[in-house]
């Protein structure tokens, strides 16, 4: 049981570090600009027109 908890903790830390590095890399390569451009205009696909 103790080993299971330790393994789970390790997985959590690895996933969290991966998540943070993904976010930083995504910000660095400018993905946010693509999202912002889509989000501030009417998304025709979302409302069933496009």
């Amino acid at each position: 049981m103790d080993n299971k908890i330790k393994l789970k903790k390790r997985i959590q830390i690895v996933l969290l570090l991966t998540a943070v590095s993904f976010i930083v890399y995504g910000l660095y390569r400018g993905e946010v600009g693509v999202i912002l451009k889509k989000a501030v205009n009417i998304c025709f696909e979302c409302i069933g027109l496009g």
Partner: peptide
Amino acid sequence: GALQVVSGSMNFKFSFYVVGFLLAAGV
């Protein structure tokens, strides 16, 4: 929506930013 928009864009085929966000929120 953001995940699909970045994946479907001309410049990127995978969204590190959104996957990272979902991974962090999920974990």
